[in-house]
Amino acid sequence: MRQAAHIFKKEFKSYFVSPIAYMVISIFLVVVGWFFFSTFFLFNQANLRNFFALLPIIFSFVVPAITMRLFSEELNVGSYEILLTMPVTFSDVILGKFLAGVAFVAALLVPTLAYPVSVSLLGELDWGPVLGGYIGAVLLGASFCAVGIFASSLTRYQIVAFIVSAAICFCLTLIDKMVFLFPRTFVGVLEYLGADFHFYNISKGIIDSRDLLYFLSIIFIGLYGANIVMQEKN
């Protein structure tokens, strides 16, 4: 566990050494801010529902960009060999890298706290859904991070890792929008598989154990998959 903390610290720091981190943060803020505020005043309602509705689809692209380097870069440079010959276990490595990704997603969300603050100046803002929305956003980000880490452990090419994980996250986001294409019996199942559906529930301010369980299972499956890939490599 202590080893995981050291790896976490190193990975999180190295995000802020390269300019990519700042680029991802700025692009994220510009895109979210523009989409959110361009329609905000038309609705004339003091809530953040539209902001949170944007997150799943935007995270599907942003989170893979954050996680793509975590393993691929090490595999490409060869430092993977150095990492694994130090006294650490696979789970230390995976956990450290995963938490670094999640922490970066959280850092990404911090500047957006300006939105609820400024909206609350304009009218009565219900803080319950906002809190739920942020909890949901971190869970969603963590799930996509787990998927991204799995994709990154597969290949030494960052771009391949990005495309694979973006594709998976995109499917998870959109699957419940496609239910009309399938017979009625599948609707419940497909809806349950959709990350968007569970995130929407939480961002209404209702924290349901089913939704938590969904995100935790995605995280577990992603990290376990990465573990299997690492075992196979050695």
Partner: peptide, 9 residues
């Protein structure tokens, strides 16, 4: 390891 692969940044 061969050719000392390290973290470049």
């Amino acid at each position: 390891p061969e050719s000392a692969p390290l973290y470049h940044d």
